[in-house]
Design a protein around this nucleic acid. Structure first.
Lengths: 174, 174
DNA sequence: CCACATGTAAACCGATCGTTTTACATTGCA
DNA sequence: TGCAATGTAAAACGATCGGTTTACATGTGG
């Protein structure tokens, strides 16, 4: 396994479970099995490491929601949660934790959320046969809501979001 | 203004904007205009201070959603955001930031979310004339989704959630 | 007048922060 | 054989962390 890949994977795991600020360089180097000197050579800085983590996560997440219907979108969310757990959105969390004052992180989050919004629009369009910005916004809200409500409501939140989205799509189609 | 109230208000402001971990005791004492000795006498510890912040926020938030219809609930959310900004849910954020490993915080968050879920159920029941756990879950997801989507989508997220909730309520009523 | 509670500023505790540097080992290539 | 790259472990950087303590100022009530 490529050292850089290993470093990013280890960092994602720690940042996701213990938070960005609370995770120190020592724990990162230990988990990545490399010295701090090597980590800094590959990552640049802690903030840049987080940005690389977010970029990798964005690619994995977007690959997971390559679907053509709203229902499949929520099925994909369920699968994502099964594999990755329910700790909310790492992008929003890391942005909030740094108060939006860490440029590398703020930019990675903004880029991801823009891509995410665009993708939802494409899925809605594929499902309906035409674009619908209002329905897109509603599906996005349901997705974000399921992600965060699942932290304390569990899988039921995704089920509810999926059902609600189905009704809303049906309402527009009729 | 009561020193304890001033302390909690100052702490809420800092924690909300810069994160729990990133906010040091020095900045808290400065904002609260008291020595660290007094702060520790009143707060106990940083984690207990955060718990007190969350309890105060819970009271203010719950008072803000004392409504009897789903539509009024989202109107209240809009008002809350106008007054408090759109930085997501401080409860979920602080819990995630500490990895759920800080008991005072984890307990305050769990208590708030339980109250929140119960309240949504009451609002749905008042609106419909009877309880509906499925609709309750959907409204909760929409509320949580609007809260978090508004961070990057703005007020449009609340508008979408409100419209979606209206349609779902109408669907159940029919 | 004295005792007490309550506050302050500031030093101090050991630990950890992100980051750089030092000194040395290993490896592949000319 | 020897140089350059790449890695390591570990020390050191100044700063800051959460938390405690010391020494002193205040006002209040017996």
């Amino acid at each position: 396994m490529d050292p850089t890949t290993r470093m990013i994977a280890a960092a994602e795991h720690l940042f996701d479970r213990h938070g960005y600020t609370a995770t120190g360089i020592d724990r990162l180097t230990e988990a990545a099995e490399m010295s701090s000197r090597t980590l800094y050579k590959r990552a640049g800085s802690k903030a840049q490491l987080m940005a690389q983590v977010l970029e990798a996560r964005d690619r994995r997440f977007m690959a997971g929601i390559e679907v053509r219907s709203v229902d499949a979108l929520f099925a994909a969310l369920e699968a994502w949660m099964q594999a990755e757990g329910t700790r909310g959105c790492l992008f929003l969390r890391s942005r909030a934790e740094t108060g939006g004052e860490t440029p590398e992180i703020a930019e990675a989050v903004a880029a991801h959320k823009a891509r995410f919004h665009r993708r939802i629009g494409e899925i809605v369009a594929a499902d309906l046969g035409q674009e619908d910005s209002a329905l897109t916004e509603q599906v996005l809200v349901l997705f974000e809501g399921a992600t965060h409500a699942a932290v304390y409501r569990g899988a039921e939140a995704v089920t509810a979001a999926r059902a609600a989205a189905g009704l809303l799509v049906e309402g527009v189609r009729a």
